[in-house]
Nucleic acid binder design. Structure first.
Length: 385
DNA sequence: TCTGGGGTCCTAGGACCC
DNA sequence: TCTGGGGTCCTAGGACCC
């Protein structure tokens, strides 16, 4: 049976959500002028998290440095983000979508898929999607695009057509007309590198990709990816709408310095901070990690990274930090300026560590107590906000 | 102009075991 | 003494997503 999938995507999410909040405070609608949301508006190293449509028309793009956008348009309105507010907006948005179908997969903070197969007929899908989109706009104050297709890929591609506040269909019989003329870069999973490889062989459109010889495609992008690209370019995708949220497979944190640092004390302080954040996060989800990884990024954006396996899974900050410090000493000469440090853990389990008191570091109990106090303080700070 | 922060999945090569 | 092949785990690195 043919499925009916909706992909709902908030238009310029962070920017729209900030605009709604500002308007409640009696301020003008920043969606109507060139404006952007960035991490820290005062930091020259910040990049743009979301841009208004007028800003996009000037060539300002998401992920572009703020300083670059200011050069394009000095009067650009720059606002900071508010995660607490964004989470509230996201929850309200998702709950409206869920009222249309319980078979919902949240794809990110501002996107979801719903399976409407048993909820509407193909011929009234557009009417239902329009109702959903209008309901979000009229009750929450921000707009969404709804893409309709017979699978997730087509629905997602459709929601990316003209914006904002629009409903588009991309049924299988429309693939040739609506999707094949698009550039390969518009196909989901085709990024910069893949685009370069494809255009080097004269493959510019999704239609050309759809008809490409599999042998050649495999040599260009690898076997598995080739198969997926070939299916997707032909509009095929049998992945289900996953209602269960998958458990995290890794947790990481990273910090970019306001300028490049080369003093080991500064680097160690940053490593300490990210270790605290990562370890706290895994404890909160009752995880323990068996792999610790760290990386440093230099001025030229080249990265040196290391990863190591632990004998026993841990959630102790000091254990994770120690491994990271050891690896840092292996990859860094102690002189070359560093732009960014990061630390991550993976191979997560919920197993409690096997207690081998005979061999266990006697300091471990002290470390755990330190972590308990850290977690308590974090909880207090959270309660205050 | 000078590039954030948080994730997922895949591939390739080496070590080790049978 | 020299040889093969498969399976699994580990690390490094690359590409993509929002």
């Amino acid at each position: 049976m043919d499925r009916i999938i909706f992909h709902i995507d908030v238009n310029s999410a962070f920017l729209s959500w900030t605009a709604v909040k500002m308007m409640r405070e009696g301020k003008p609608d920043i969606r109507l002028v060139p404006s952007v949301v960035s991490g820290d508006p005062n930091d020259r190293r910040s990049i743009i998290t979301a841009a208004s449509i007028p800003a996009k028309k000037l060539g300002i793009k998401t992920a572009q440095p703020v300083s670059m956008a200011l050069r394009t348009y000095p009067q650009l309105v720059i606002v900071g983000g508010d995660w607490t507010w964004y989470k509230q907006c996201s929850e309200s948005f998702i709950s409206i979508c869920r009222s249309y179908s319980p078979v919902l997969q949240q794809f990110s903070i501002d996107e979801c898929f719903i399976d409407m197969s048993f909820r509407c007929k193909p011929e009234n899908a557009v009417a239902v999607a329009t109702r959903l989109k209008d309901q979000v706009r009229d009750t929450l104050g921000f707009t969404v695009n709804v893409g309709i297709g017979s699978n997730k890929l087509l629905a997602k591609m459709a929601s990316d057509f003209e914006k904002p506040d629009k409903v588009h269909t991309l049924w299988e019989n429309e693939v040739q007309e609506k999707m094949w003329p698009l550039g390969v870069r518009d196909l989901l999973w085709v990024g910069k590198k893949t685009e370069e490889r494809l255009t080097a062989y004269g493959i510019h459109t999704i239609g050309q990709l759809a008809g490409l010889d599999m042998g050649l495609l495999m040599r260009l992008v690898g076997q598995k990816f080739a198969q997926q690209l070939h299916e997707n370019a032909n509009g095929r995708d049998d992945s289900p709408v996953e209602t269960e949220r998958a458990e995290a497979k890794s947790v990481s944190a990273e910090r970019t310095f306001s300028r490049d640092y080369s003093d080991p004390k500064d680097i160690d302080r940053a490593l300490f901070n990210v270790a605290c954040i990562v370890a706290h996060r895994i404890r909160r989800h009752d995880f323990r990690a068996s792999t610790v990884s760290m990386f440093i990024k230099y001025k030229d954006f080249s990265v040196a990274q290391k990863q190591t396996s632990l004998d026993q899974p841990t959630d102790v900050t000091a254990v994770i930090l120690n491994e990271a410090r050891r690896m840092l000493a292996e990859v860094w000469d102690g002189i070359t300026p560093i732009r960014q440090v990061g630390l991550g853990v993976s191979k997560l389990t919920h197993e409690s560590a096997v207690q081998m008191s005979l061999f266990e570091d006697p300091k471990l109990e002290y470390y755990r107590e330190w972590d308990r106090q850290y977690d308590e303080q974090r909880a207090e700070i959270k309660n205050q906000t």
